[in-house]
Amino acid sequence: MIIVYAGLLLGVLGLVFGGVLTFAAKKFHVEVDERVNQIKECLGGANCGACGYAGCDAFAQAVVDGKAPIDGCAPAGAKGIEKIGKIMGMEANVGERLVARVICQGTHGIAKDRYVYDGYKSCAVAAGLAGGPKDCRFACLGLGDCQDKCKFDAITMENGIAHIDPDKCTACGACVKACPRSVISLMPESQNVIVRCRNSDVARAARAVCMDACIGCGRCKKECKYDAIVVENGYARIISEKCTRCGECAAVCPCKCITIE
C-alpha cells in the first residue's frame, strides 16, 4: 500500500508545482523581440567577442536596439550579414570576405635563431626575453598566442610559424590583437599575391637574420604594370585595389618573399 501512497503524493506534488510554474511563466512573461532570436541564428555563434559585445546574445540585442551596426559580426560572413540586413529591413553593405594572413615565412632554418627558448609557451613572454628567440625583430615567434585566441580552430603552428586555414578563418581579428609582433593582418580573400615580410631594417641587416626577408630592392615594383606595389620602410607592400593578381612580381622576387596562395 505504501508504494501507492508515495506514488500518489509525488503525482499530486508534480501537478501542484507544474501549475505554479505554468502560472509564473504566463504571469511574468518577458517580451523578446523575435528578431533577436532570428539574428542570433545568423551569427557565428562562437561568442568570440570580436564585435565588442559580451557575446552573440548581447550583439543580437544591440543590433535590434540599433546600437550595433548590422555588419558588426565578422564570423557571420557575407551571407549572414545579408540575412541580418533582411531581418532588420536595411540594405546590407557587404564587402569582400576577409581572411587573416601571416606576414612571415621565417620557419626554422630560414630565420636565424638567437637562442633556444624552452620557457613559458607564450609569444608575448618570449618576445620580452632578449628581444625574442629569433634574430629578426619582426618575425612570427611560433609559440601560439594567436592559436590560443582562435575560436574557430583555424590556426596551426608549423615549423616555428603560424599557419592560418583560410577556409576556417572568419576574420574576427582575435589573432591580430593577440600577436605581440603584429605579423597577422586581415586581407581580402581574393588577394592571393602576398608580400610575406615586413622587416623594415636595411637590406643587409634584414638578410643577415632571415633568408626570406624582403630587402626592399624594388624589383617587384619595376615589374608591376599596374602600379600596385609600393616600397616604403624597407619592404614592399601590395595595394589590393590596384593589384590584378597576375603574379609577375612573385616570379621576379629575388628573396622569394612574394607568394601566391
Binding site: 620580452g128 626575453l129 632578449a130 628581444g131
Partner: peptide, 8 residues
C-alpha cells in the same frame, strides 16, 4: 645590441 629585455 639585444639585451635581456624587449628590444635593443
Amino acid at each position: 645590441i639585444p639585451y635581456l629585455g624587449t628590444g635593443n
